[in-house]
Design a protein around this nucleic acid. Sequence first.
DNA 1: TCGTAGTTGCGAAGAAGTTGCAACTGGGTA
DNA 2: TACCCAGTTGCAACTTCTTCGCAACTACGA
Lengths: 154, 154
Amino acid sequence: MSRTPLHAEVITTAPASAEEAVALLRQRGSRATPSRRFLLEALYATDQHLTADELAAGVHERSPEVHLSTIYRNLDELQRLGLVTHTHLGHGPVTYQLASHAHAHLICNTCGHRVEAPDGLFVELEARALTDHGFRVDPHHLAVFGTCADCQSG
Amino acid sequence: MSRTPLHAEVITTAPASAEEAVALLRQRGSRATPSRRFLLEALYATDQHLTADELAAGVHERSPEVHLSTIYRNLDELQRLGLVTHTHLGHGPVTYQLASHAHAHLICNTCGHRVEAPDGLFVELEARALTDHGFRVDPHHLAVFGTCADCQSG
DNA sequence: TCGTAGTTGCGAAGAAGTTGCAACTGGGTA
DNA sequence: TACCCAGTTGCAACTTCTTCGCAACTACGA
């Protein structure tokens, strides 16, 4: 009679769509509210890192009365469930993205330009941090500062 | 007649003391004010990364009337001169340190614990970022997030 | 349909940092 | 040595980003 597998207590595969994510939400004891639906749709509609404000703008296209504090609370909840992660990109607000879309960034101190960094860039760092420091690096939650090619020549 | 070498327009060796840094300040056309002296003394008195608030506390031991906005403005000026750098350590305020004391950090997402990372940890990353992306990594201005040894076992 | 625990909107508060401005002062110049 | 003024300061108000308290609302299992 169960609508969903009873053992589904851990995300094994990331939900492939906003609807699947909403289903997961309910399955985990959270409520599937409109504001959460719209937030998930906004997150699934992009592979960019978006600020709470930008996500609110996306949600407001569907439902203008959703308050920014609700966006923040829902982002917290989605992070708690492992669906969403956030990244500190230096100055400016925190950015959010689907956990499955997370990736590291190279950020130019001079012009602020952001380059997405492939995970391969960090394999040695991850290995060394683990062996030398017992530290398990999350390469998706990582901002590497420096100077981009343009600003070096400029 | 010159008190200081006329060609000293670029920091070749970092000032070894607050007094030397104050001299450098003047030499570069900035004024050597008490608030800057006290700020430099606070910076030279530690090899920790300190927040603007913590630095203000240090300055206030010598001169309680120095305003926090003055601390921020002086930190900006010292960064402009290359004496000081700042680091974003994830949540919480920016931290400042002498440019010569800068180093990367491993920051635990779970407990917030910070481990200083030796520069050697980043040699491959630096090389790859430069060859693959033309990006010159500043390994001192870097926060690597993940999970520390304690929190993995806990 | 009902009850209630989870959620929401709203406004206010908090933390960190910035800005405008009048008053002050370091240090080059006469 | 005294003077002058561009650079600096103290202060208060402001901005931005995020969190919190609380009463009203609602999703959803019974």
